[in-house]
Amino acid sequence: MEHDERTVPGGALAAALQMVEIVCGRDGGASSGRVSDEIVHSLKIWGHDVVTEAFGTLIYVAARQLQPAADQPDAAGPMELVSAVVTRLQREYPEVLNEHISIAAGILTAAFLDIGPYGWRTSLGPVHPSEHLTWCFTAALLVDLVDTTMQRPGGFAEIVAAILDSDS
């Protein structure tokens, strides 16, 4: 992965994952208001850049999980998955501003091309706070896709939890 040697704190990753799980309906039901409240709370603790990068890390790890194996020639390719996630994002989350749909497509494409989404996005300029729901909902849709592929709701969260536990 292309990156600048930054490390996202485990607590920030855990907070981002909790927000994603809320959106996926695995933590008391999703509402954009509740997710917005969680984002504001996380911003106070971790700061704007760290929260955005935590969502980007989740997106990157999920994209890595969805890469088709060499022996799966009929598996959906990365651009098909990007298209599917962006289509669902537009359909299911009207809170996401139209001008942020291209950002979602870009961060997903970067992740599937083994480029860190946060690094890719910041190479275009600063991330605006209005993008946070876009990052969160994009991560949630990708995580849901990983869980569906694993046929185990919460499977991605278990992977991230194991990684965080091994780092402590």
Score class of each variant (00 low, 15 high):
1 M>Y: 11
3 H>E: 12
4 D>I: 14
4 D>V: 15
5 E>V: 11
7 T>R: 14
8 V>L: 09
9 P>A: 12
9 P>I: 09
20 V>G: 03
24 C>N: 15
28 G>V: 01
29 G>F: 01
30 A>M: 08
30 A>I: 00
30 A>W: 10
31 S>D: 01
34 R>Y: 00
35 V>H: 00
37 D>L: 09
37 D>V: 03
37 D>P: 00
39 I>N: 00
44 K>F: 03
45 I>L: 13
46 W>M: 02
48 H>C: 02
49 D>F: 02
50 V>R: 07
51 V>C: 06
53 E>G: 08
53 E>W: 06
53 E>M: 10
54 A>L: 06
55 F>L: 07
60 Y>G: 12
62 A>K: 03
63 A>L: 04
63 A>Q: 06
63 A>Y: 05
68 P>R: 15
68 P>H: 07
70 A>Y: 12
70 A>N: 10
71 D>F: 11
73 P>C: 09
74 D>V: 12
74 D>W: 13
79 M>L: 14
81 L>T: 12
83 S>F: 04
85 V>F: 05
86 V>Q: 03
87 T>G: 07
90 Q>L: 08
91 R>T: 11
94 P>N: 06
94 P>K: 10
94 P>G: 05
95 E>D: 11
98 N>D: 15
98 N>M: 12
100 H>R: 10
101 I>R: 04
102 S>F: 06
103 I>P: 00
103 I>T: 14
105 A>Y: 01
107 I>M: 15
108 L>E: 08
111 A>W: 02
111 A>E: 02
112 F>K: 05
112 F>D: 05
113 L>A: 15
113 L>Y: 13
116 G>L: 09
118 Y>H: 15
119 G>C: 09
120 W>H: 15
120 W>M: 13
121 R>V: 06
122 T>F: 02
124 L>D: 07
126 P>I: 12
127 V>C: 10
128 H>G: 01
128 H>K: 13
133 L>G: 01
133 L>A: 03
135 W>T: 03
139 A>Q: 07
139 A>E: 04
140 A>N: 06
140 A>C: 05
146 V>L: 04
147 D>Y: 04
147 D>S: 04
149 T>E: 10
150 M>P: 00
151 Q>F: 03
151 Q>W: 01
153 P>R: 10
157 A>D: 08
159 I>M: 14
162 A>F: 07
163 I>S: 11
164 L>G: 03
165 D>R: 15
165 D>E: 15
168 S>T: 14
